[in-house]
Simulated scan of single mutants.
Amino acid sequence: MKIAVLGTGSVGPALAAALSGLGHDVVIGTRDPQATLARTEPGRTGGPPFSQWHASHREIAVAAFADAAAASELVVNATNGTASVEALTEAGAANLAGKIVMDVANPLDFSRGFPPSLNPVNTDSLGEQIQRAFPEAKVVKTLNTMTNSVMVEPGRVAGGDHTVFVSGNDAGAKAEVTEILAALGHTDVLDLGDITTARGAEMILPLWLRVWGALGTGEFNFKVAR
């Protein structure tokens, strides 16, 4: 499958490498490909500079948002949540129409420092905002409740015995995303319902941040025991 991963922080490259490793044709989308490829500073979370990462993943192309989305069959939104709608607008509504948009971002608001709050919250979600902005896309919220290393290698935590959620209006899109999650190694995929249920998945983040602070590591996840 041709997959565009939008975002060059820590999550986008991790997912791009994992999906490429599964045999997909992957391109990373960014606002300015040349500036991104020239980046030599470490990532915000201490990861390697993008240029260094890309030197080890030459099979993954780097393109502008619109070019990446246009050439894809599925788009992964791994951009900063507060700028996701803007980034997807740059990707182009026509380039997203009829395609699955796998949204893994969180709308974290750092305007008052750390820990961040959520915006929107309670009566709306980023997943819903994206679906409203791009009504012809098939938005599926998933993977936003864990750190990127666990997204792509769930066996790092409890042998993989933990839960990943999906939310979306299109049953077929959720089924395709579930297949991708299974290929990544996720064994417990819980369908929460339509895209409004993304509110619950996103609202896990305040708890996630406190657990991260208590444990001193992001390598954990939640399990729905039933």
Rank of each mutant, 00 (worst) to 15 (best):
V11T: 09
G12N: 10
P13K: 05
A14N: 10
L15C: 11
A16E: 05
A17W: 05
L19C: 11
S20E: 14
G21S: 15
G21E: 13
V26S: 01
T30E: 00
T30D: 01
P33V: 00
L37M: 09
R39I: 00
R44I: 03
R44T: 03
T45F: 05
T45H: 12
G47N: 06
F50G: 00
F50R: 00
S51F: 01
A55N: 02
E59I: 02
A66R: 03
D67C: 02
E73C: 10
L74V: 04
V75Q: 02
A78C: 06
T79G: 02
T82C: 07
T82G: 11
S84T: 13
V85E: 13
A94S: 12
N95H: 12
A97P: 07
K99Q: 07
V101P: 07
N106P: 06
F110Q: 08
R112K: 12
S117M: 11
L118K: 06
L118F: 07
V121R: 13
N122S: 11
T123N: 15
D124Y: 14
D124E: 14
S125Y: 12
L126D: 12
E128V: 08
I130F: 07
A133T: 04
E136S: 14
A137V: 08
T142Q: 06
T145Q: 10
S149H: 13
M151R: 14
G155D: 11
